[in-house]
Amino acid sequence: MKKILGIVGLLVVVSILTAIKSPESFLSAYNLENLLRRSALFGIISIGAAFVIITSGIDLSIGSGVCLVGCLLPWLLKVHGWPVAAALPLVLIIPLLIGLVHGLLVAKLRIQPFVVTLCGLLLYRGAMRGLTGDQAQGFGTGFETLKYLALGKPFSIPLPLVNWIRDGSWGDWSQFVLWVACPMPAVILLLVGVAAAVFLNLTVYGRYLLALGRNEEAARYSGINTNRMVILAYVLCAGLAGLGGMLFVLDVNSAQPVDFGNFYELYAIAAAVLGGCSLRGGEGSILGVIVGATVMQVLRNSITLVGIPTQLEFAIIGAVILAGVIVDELVKRLAARRRAAREARDR
């Protein structure tokens, strides 16, 4: 719990700064709903990345996985006229199989995860560009039920005080609560997140993942089928990338094979690292990862709102993450030193 305090703090600081600079836009119901949707979409793929990072691996093919599903689904539905009931299972099974192959190559053939998934990154996007002739794939109109998964708003969330802060209308009780529509991706993220957290923290398999991430050899000597667990992590990661890809494309209605999902693996990895995963493996908190993904989206949002040229987006995100990681490290050292001093005094 202590671990994610830092990232929550970063989220609060960035939010407050943005709210001060641009209260009307940032704290509007529309913007908050959008922010929630984007954060949820990236949260889903970041959880997948976290599982792989916990095994001390890496998955660079997440963005291409998003592209694969994002292009394949409209391509099957519109170009080939497949029924939803056939196309949907297929586009969700393909990423699982991709994850299985990644996992087998990493666990059984012992190829480095970086290499395996780097090839995946090139392969899946390249294949989609070839398959679609590099043409944008879209749903057009229709498919309302399917689109509900990304665009639906099943209920609203009451946020107290936001109106007062935004408008300075302190004491106006009719404005006390701001109702923000909760988008479907946030509901899906909640389900995925709870399932992932339960899996990681309460099941034996979660313990096995954490153990093998720290020391695979000792885990194997303890009778844990480490290969199976590693494969599972890659399957989960690719599967969640696929699920994310489907929601992303439903959200924006069309996808360009050349850049759809570009760099998303880096957003996902950055969110996981911000959220407390160590690339050395064996560490991670699902809640932290979700907060990490949110921080990245709030940052992007504030860059737009505050009026910084969007060309600078990457530079700013990079600088903030780096600063966050440095501060985190310094705080950790300070705490260690304080503890040492206290123990020395108690003696």
């Binding site: 034996v204 313990r207 954490l210 153990a211 000792a218 000597y221 844990i224 064996g282």
Partner: peptide, 23 residues
């Protein structure tokens, strides 16, 4: 290298083999 997960707790190491049995 083979006997312990050094960065895990004593209790987590002690229960690592037994986990599967008690699940």
């Amino acid at each position: 290298q083979q006997g312990l997960i050094l960065d895990m707790a004593v209790s987590e190491n002690l229960s690592l083999v037994r986990l599967a049995h008690d699940q």
